Computed example of a mutant assay.
Amino acid sequence: MRTRVWGGTAAVVLGGLLVAGCGGEKDTGSDSAGKGANSVSGAYPVSVTDCMGAETTFSATPKKIVTSNASGLELLLRLGAGDRVIGTGFPPGKGTLPGALDARAQKVEVLGQTVIPKEKLLGSGADLYIDTFASMGSMGGGGMGDAPTAEEFKAAGIKHIYLKSTACAAQSKTPVTDLSAVEADITSLGAVTGTSARARELVAGMKEKVAAVRKAVGGTPENKRPTYFFFDYDAGTKQPTVTCNRQVANAVITLAGARSAFAACDGDYKQVGWENVIAKNPDWIQLGVRNRGSESANKKAFDEAEQWLKSNPATKGLKAVKEGHLLRIGSEQTTIAGVENADTVEAIAKALYPGKVG
Rank of each mutant, 00 (worst) to 15 (best):
R214G: 05
Y233C: 00
A216M: 14
R225Y: 09
T237S: 01
P226K: 05
K224G: 08
Q239C: 01
V242H: 03
R214L: 13
K209S: 04
A235F: 05
E222D: 15
K215I: 06
G218T: 15
G219I: 15
T241V: 11
V242L: 07
F229Q: 04
P240L: 07
G219L: 14
F229W: 07
Y233I: 00
Y233S: 00
K209N: 03
G218I: 15
N223S: 15
F231I: 05
R225F: 07
F230R: 01
G218L: 15
T220N: 07
V242M: 08
N223P: 08
G218R: 14
F229T: 02
R225T: 05
P221Y: 10
T241W: 07
K224Y: 00
F229D: 01
D234R: 00
T220V: 15
V217T: 14
P221C: 10
G218K: 15
V217H: 10
F229S: 04
P221N: 11
A212S: 12
K209L: 12
R225P: 03
K238M: 01
T227K: 05
V210S: 06
Y233A: 01
T241A: 09
T227F: 04
D232M: 03
G236A: 06
D232E: 07
V217E: 13
A216S: 13
P240A: 11
R225G: 06
F231W: 06
A216W: 12
Y233K: 00
K209C: 04
